[in-house]
Design a protein around this nucleic acid. Structure first.
Lengths: 270, 270
DNA sequence: ATAGATCGAATGTCTAGACAAGTAGTGCAT
DNA sequence: ATGCACTACTTGTCTAGACATTCGATCTAT
């Protein structure tokens, strides 16, 4: 407050009240990114608002410019702000946040939609995989996969039919767990140390089979949304291959995408 | 070659042959990111390969470490490499590239799938929008929107029925263009300077109506994939609201997602 | 053999500057 | 009034260091 950084009058901005702890274990740039990020997130600053210049912020925080720019880089990367050389750094509209599409399990998905997820186990087998499944898992002739078939419910109502396949090699003894009660992904992470990293989904529309119709209580003249998802782990190792059949009248897949940013390699565009 | 950076023997790596131009207009860190990126992309270095330490690369390129780290940051952000403190920087499996889901027009989508996109214009009207459409575009009572209805074809076969809505205010005189021949997105960008930035899609499965069945020549017992896409521009301004109906037997939506990275604000998780 | 201390090497963070390059406005000359 | 040079201010790029933190291997004492 009383510090005379420059002799001129200091404009009071919302940034004047942010404080950082230089001795904390979390790095300064992260503290600043979080502080400014939450300032933007709370809606205190309207979209288009021009932030104070970097040098002013540096002086206020008492840090070097490169450190501040590291924080700004984080904010820019996630779409909180938008810098233009020679002009300044402006607050971006919150609808424009560049969040990556996230890998979500059924449970996480339903909870994110404000529902209560449940499962009913239909079968849990150890089986010889079909060729396409074996290909995906890169297995030998004899290696088996777990096939977990469940009815998935949202708020007590049947929503989807799910067939998850996992290689036995990665999670031996899976049948000992109660896959109906706890989330399959929680079991994989906590008991086997397996973490999904990337996911590729193929979404298509189909007419339900009589069996699907019965298991999901699908009314007449209703289609189903079929999602085939392939999940990989950190070094690209295949983890899960799941086919989910959702009631078309109760479920909608949501995809968020952004404009192609100038990539390092823009070979794919013709 | 002849430079004696250190007295010890220099290991020859593929990086030894990369050259940069310090006087070029493109920044050094970007040149280096591109050079190393293309090296990784060409598959010269296998996944898991440990790059030379930063300080070695700095010496080879004759640049400062912060500059090299800026290049590495780019590569890391796009998933080309993976750094671990105390260990080193390793090449990531190419299947693990963290590409953002991209905004694609129908034409771009079909071309990316290796097909030839075409259009047949059904109607182009200037109409009073429905409440939900008006809400999205933030329009007043009297303001109108263009409604462009087209049959979209892939390799000459009807694939989708598309109803695109655009506010008249943004693209007055749109009817003068040949929206059947050229891509709507190209017209918007080149003639009106309108560029899509983000896109939100809701994908659902439905039973086709008799009219849809006729226009798309949909066979019996086939569902349709319905995609509602809302496109925004740079400051979050709404640009386009489109409803597309795809033949379920010919089209599959593809979604790529990644594990939630440690975000600046991780408030959403309960 | 095994557990623990040590140490070298690697990335992570940060500093205090410098110059480059783009933008928008000021003010002058026409 | 109009066009143009100039200037102040902004972000972008880069340097040459410093110390911190983490990991893995080696060495040592038990």
């Amino acid at each position: 407050m009383g510090s005379a950084v420059t002799a001129s009058t200091q404009t009071i901005t919302p940034f004047s009240y942010l404080r950082i702890d230089k001795d904390a274990s979390t790095p300064i740039y992260q503290q600043i990114a979080e502080a400014i990020g939450s300032l933007l997130d709370s809606g205190v600053l309207p979209p288009g608002y021009i932030l104070p210049p970097e040098r002013v912020l540096c002086a206020q925080f008492g840090i070097s410019r490169m450190t501040l720019r590291q924080a700004m880089s984080l904010l820019d990367r996630e779409g909180f702000v938008n810098s233009r050389r020679g002009v300044g750094t402006a607050v971006t509209d919150s609808r424009l946040r560049k969040q990556q599409q996230e890998v979500r399990s059924f449970s996480e998905d339903i909870r994110a939609r404000g529902g209560r997820p449940e499962s009913r186990l239909i079968s849990l087998d150890l089986a010889i995989p079909t060729p396409s499944v074996r290909d995906f898992f890169e297995l030998h002739e004899q290696q088996k996969v777990y096939e977990v078939q469940r009815v998935r419910l949202k708020d007590g109502e049947p929503l989807a039919l799910e067939l998850a396949r996992l290689p036995e090699r990665l999670c031996p003894g899976l049948e000992r767990f109660d896959v109906a009660r706890s989330s399959l992904h929680e079991i994989l992470e906590q008991s086997y140390g397996l973490r999904p990293e990337t996911c590729n989904e193929e979404i298509s529309a189909e007419i339900p089979s009589p069996e699907q119709r019965k298991l999901l209580s699908i009314p007449a003249r209703t289609a189903v949304l079929v999602i085939n998802r392939k999940i990989h782990m950190d070094q690209g190792r295949p983890l899960e291959f799941t086919r989910s059949v959702y009631r078309g009248d109760r479920y909608t897949a949501v995809v968020h995408s952004v404009r192609r940013s100038k990539s390092i390699l823009q070979a794919t565009s013709s």
